[in-house]
Design a protein around this nucleic acid. Sequence first.
DNA 1: GGCTCTGTTCTATATGAGGTGCATCATAGG
DNA 2: CCTATGATGCACCTCATATAGAACAGAGCC
Lengths: 139, 139
Amino acid sequence: MLLSIEPDGPVPIYQQIRDRIVEAIATGDAPVGSGLPATRQLGVDLGINFHTVNKGYDLLRQEGLLRIGRKAGAVVQRDATSGPPRPGWEEGWTARMRTMLAEAIAQGLASEEIIVHCQDIIAGFVPATHYGPAVGEAS
Amino acid sequence: MLLSIEPDGPVPIYQQIRDRIVEAIATGDAPVGSGLPATRQLGVDLGINFHTVNKGYDLLRQEGLLRIGRKAGAVVQRDATSGPPRPGWEEGWTARMRTMLAEAIAQGLASEEIIVHCQDIIAGFVPATHYGPAVGEAS
DNA sequence: GGCTCTGTTCTATATGAGGTGCATCATAGG
DNA sequence: CCTATGATGCACCTCATATAGAACAGAGCC
């Protein structure tokens, strides 16, 4: 679990931590059951306060992606293999995605290009090992 | 140009104004050359300060979507018909989109579902009139 | 030239978010 | 008991958000 953050960027540190972990879950680098670093430890590693790390972890807990216990620390509770999303989550996501896609359209990207972009990004996440036999794998 | 905002929501008002206008550009409700309401006027209409409106407009100006003049006010400068996006824009957009897609994967949405969702949203934007002769238009 | 409408700029203020630091408590395990 | 861990609370600072008032500048119109 290697995390790199941008301390002086426009996006808050705790948000960056949340985003990087979400991406780690998507790529499979952080599967269900895997433990994340302790808040104090990660704080030291990143050179930030452990409260900030805690805030990022707490976001993920609210989203249902993390389970946080006293001694076990933060453990991934949900990933691509965990079934359908929690009810109510999709509304907010769709609204945000709508703005993202509108921005691309307004900037002149063609519909087909946008879709291809999304497919490429997703292909970078899942090496086609989650939904059936992949290239070069036994069936 | 009807704008509705959520004053008590988690997303800043000026950001909402920016987002709604971006979507209006994408849908074609605000084509190139069309004028937006004056900042003071829109401020009154929405019940907010005109400085907040100004901040939203300024964001769009920085993104190259708006041209703002003394007397003409805010005029849409760019939309889906304006050619390829400005260089350098795509990097940030791809990074943000990466996080959005990772979230969907982590929440359990299948790759195919995500793509279909994006296609549906885009279909709601562009009624297939932008890429080639449209229904009822001369070729 | 005046008048008005527009954006621009400046100052000021109030509220909340982001981030850090320190201290303390609670719990689970050796 | 001792230690590592998360949970909680408090104080503090910086900066973003939002509002408000005032004054300035350009462009169009009478």
